[in-house]
Design a protein around this nucleic acid. Structure first.
Lengths: 131, 131
DNA sequence: TATGGGGCTTCCAGCTGCTGGAAGGTCAAG
DNA sequence: CTTGACCTTCCAGCAGCTGGAAGCCCCATA
């Protein structure tokens, strides 16, 4: 399989796949002509990484997950620990975003939003947070 | 005021303040010795940007907000529009993160997390999403 | 067999928003 | 006069790609 085919199958841009090889996530072999020649296993790994990425795992985490995936003797506890750490990060990010949303929503509600210059949003940004 | 003082007052690292000058958000004047000499207005702008950043506005958005802030003839509607667009982005990010959370939480719950290699989390990553 | 259009390769640069560090000038205290 | 804390500039690097240039390669058609 060459890169375009694998890209389509894995749902990743060819550029990204080259990048993943670059950083050592996959090691496709090369044909006589220098073209990458992907195996089914390469494709599986790419799809795996693609899904992990779409769940927000970093490349470092993906590398670890891939290692565990390939290691037949892994302990599921290690995987679970990694995933739980990640979920915790996701949740704290959600909390952070919700706080932003709350603050901004209040300011937006207070702003009449017309042609006049008077603006509680700018006023809110100009002064230290009060609540 | 020199940079350390302003950094403390604005709650931003000196490096960040230099960077903000670099990209043209502020234009502090210079003393004889080449040191930056910040005015009260520079400080206000930095604090303004700091707050906008902490609400998740991008640098580009901060630049626009700063422009509106400085423009006595602005229409509050323009500010409100900018803020509403931003809130919409925050909310879609929250939704995205919540979807990740939901998927991962399910996988984590299904995983016994012990010494055995059998792992629904890895299995979930290895196969196309089903639900 | 020549040619044209696509796909493949590499490498380099740039995006966001800083942050760390090196090399060197400056200032104030002792 | 020295010491140490400041200040300056510039360069490199973080994540995770993405775009583009320059140059092979392959296949189909004329």
């Amino acid at each position: 399989m060459n890169i375009a085919e694998v890209a389509k199958a894995a749902g990743l841009p060819a550029k990204t796949i080259r990048y993943y090889e670059d950083i050592g996530l996959i090691h496709p072999k090369r044909g006589e002509n220098g073209y990458r020649d992907f195996s089914a296993s390469d494709l599986h790994k790419l799809a795996f990484v693609g899904r992990a990425r779409s769940l927000g795992f970093s490349i470092v985490e993906c590398r670890a997950l891939l290692g565990l995936y390939e290691d037949q003797g892994r302990a599921s506890g290690d995987v679970k620990a990694l995933a739980m750490t990640h979920v915790a990060q996701i949740r704290s990010k959600i909390d952070e975003l919700r706080a932003m949303d709350a603050t901004l929503s209040k300011l937006i509600q207070a702003c009449h939003g017309d042609q006049r210059p008077d603006c509680p949003i700018l006023a809110g940004l100009a002064k230290p947070a009060v609540g």
